[in-house]
């Protein structure tokens, strides 16, 4: 039961969806649409369980006085405050949007912008022409970095066209080749999942 039922579920729903792609009959199409809608409903729970886990992990951290447990209190308070603001005032509530605008936006945006600094130090310390291949990478990178911003156009008016050529010719070719490889890999993975050969996503795959 524990291993057969999941295989039946994955095979049954999977192959129905595969076949329904090719059969335009109304009953089949409606059923497939219903399954899709269920899927989206279930996916919502994936997020709920994520939030549930955050609460659980941080409660445990506080209970067992693990390292930095004090911060977990801050985290949980923020979570509760945000949820209270949202569920009492609604997603249009002033306080909820106030926190979104003045806490979530600046923190999210700043976190990402830290990368500007890391990219700079990587450029200085890690980005080296150690081999012919790396040299090629380097030259392309420098051309794109200069030619794609206004300073490149200012230096030489043909710069943007040169960069566009790099993007549409060698870049497109390599990206497409890589894409084909990835697509094949994903199809083979999908097939194994549907056939129940690949079970690692269920955890281990053995009973």
């Amino acid at each position: 039961m524990k291993s057969i039922l999941p295989i039946i579920v994955v095979f049954g729903f999977g192959f129905f969806m595969l076949v329904s792609f090719f059969i335009p009959l109304k009953g089949i199409q409606d059923t497939s649409q219903t399954f899709q809608n269920w899927y989206i409903g279930v996916m919502a729970f994936f997020i709920f369980i994520g939030i549930f886990n955050i609460i659980k992990i941080n409660l445990e951290k506080i209970q067992r006085r693990l390292r930095d447990w004090q911060y977990s209190i801050i985290l949980l308070i923020c979570l509760l405050v945000m949820m209270a603001a949202g569920f009492i005032g609604g997603p249009e509530g002033g306080l909820f949007l106030y926190f979104y605008k003045n806490v979530q936006i600046p923190l999210g945006a700043t976190m990402f912008s830290l990368l500007a600094f890391f990219v700079a130090s990587a450029a200085f310390r890690a980005f080296r022409a150690r081999s012919p291949e790396a040299t090629l990478l380097l030259i392309a990178a420098v051309l794109v970095m200069i030619g794609r911003v206004p300073i490149g156009y200012w230096i030489w008016h043909g710069f943007p066209n040169l960069v566009e050529w790099i993007m549409t010719v060698p870049n497109t070719a390599a990206k497409r080749g890589i894409l084909f490889g990835i697509d094949l890999g994903m199809i083979s993975m999908g097939l194994r999942v549907l056939l129940g050969i690949e079970r690692s996503y269920m955890g281990g795959g053995k009973e």
Partner: peptide, 12 residues
């Protein structure tokens, strides 16, 4: 970064 990935990793 995903709850399900955690349970899977733990089992693995």
């Amino acid at each position: 970064s995903k709850a399900m990935a955690m349970s899977m990793a733990q089992q693995v």
